[in-house]
């Protein structure tokens, strides 16, 4: 194949890749063609040919830059948003309307449709059993879509309008403050009527998406059945990963170890956090004897928080 034919073939390939919208592949073929032209003296009008190819490369470069700079989750039309909610929200038969609405809003947020998601979350903040989850998600979306200052303004709006009960607003304050601290900002949110530490009713059933559970320092378990029936015990949390709490139980407390077998559901639990005590439930996920180290012989337990 002559050099001229090779160049022709490369240019044709480049055009075909462009037709396939494979812009980088097209650009590479044009570049190959240029380098072939540059190294060959026999090709007439070399300079004008290279100039023409470079124009094509510029056009491709513009397309590549535009593509790379485009948002990965731009806002789409309300009709498409409705479809996203319909197709990607997994509902449970037990869900009430508020939980369904919460899940729908979470779906929108996952697809980056923050503006509508924020509106939908904010409509749910005043509904008691989803208020904390709705407020947390709203804050999360505002931080993603706008600024920390906007999130703080939203928080103050809830405080001023008393949209959330005081114990819930404390949870949201802690949640927001943690986000702020992670960004290295020096903004500090004042606690409204602080020192309100009291027991509260369950707020929201946990699911796998709820990763932002507050820090739990220790737990209380009231046993309603089994060998420890009627007893209330308290244990320190040694490690927390999301909604899974790890605890160490001494090998001497055999009845307790027996009461906390894998799969046992603990319906009456207290979760102690630095800001409040929460009522809730959990499930024993693992119960393993420690084989090495200073705690050898003791048991390591994982309890997954089910509701809080």
């Amino acid at each position: 194949m002559s050099i001229k034919d090779k160049v022709k073939m490369l240019l044709k390939e480049a055009e075909l890749y462009k037709g396939q919208r494979l812009l980088k592949e097209s650009k590479n073929k044009y570049l190959e063609a240029i380098s072939l032209i540059k190294t060959n003296e026999l090709i007439p009008n070399k300079e004008s040919l290279i100039t023409a190819i470079n124009k094509k490369i510029d056009f491709l470069n513009n397309g590549i830059v535009r593509w790379e700079q485009s948002a990965s989750t731009p806002e789409v039309s309300p009709k498409v948003q409705d479809l996203i909610q319909k197709l990607f929200t997994s509902e449970d038969i037990k869900d009430n309307d508020a939980v369904k609405a919460l899940k729908s809003a979470i779906t929108l947020a996952k697809f980056g449709q923050y503006k509508r998601a924020i509106n939908e979350f904010n409509n749910l903040v005043s509904i008691d059993h989803v208020s904390v989850a709705a407020a947390k998600n709203s804050i999360k979306c505002i931080v993603e879509n706008a600024t920390i200052e906007d999130a703080v303004a939203q928080y103050h709006q809830w405080v001023n309008k008393k949209t959330l009960k005081s114990d819930r607003i404390m949870v949201i304050r802690k949640y927001l403050q943690d986000i702020i601290d992670k960004t290295g900002s020096i903004i500090s949110i004042d606690a409204p009527n602080s020192s309100e530490q009291k027991n509260v009713a369950p707020m929201y059933e946990m699911d796998e998406q709820d990763e932002d559970i507050i820090d739990i320092t220790s737990i209380g378990i009231r046993f309603n059945h089994g060998p420890k029936k009627g007893e209330h015990i308290e244990l320190d949390v040694s490690f927390q990963a999301g909604n899974v709490l790890s605890l160490i139980v001494s090998s001497s407390d055999k009845l307790l170890i027996e009461s906390l077998k894998i799969g046992v559901r603990l319906d009456d639990m207290d979760f102690y956090s630095p800001i409040a005590i929460f009522k809730g439930s959990g499930v024993v996920e693992s119960n393993t004897r420690i084989e090495t180290g200073p705690k050898r012989g003791d048991y390591s337990l994982d309890i997954k928080i089910h509701s809080i």
Partner: peptide
């Protein structure tokens, strides 16, 4: 058939 695509004709979220 629903297509949610970009200006450049690439699928943005999904086709259904």
């Amino acid at each position: 058939m629903v297509s949610v695509d970009t200006e450049g004709d690439s699928t943005l979220f999904f086709d259904f």
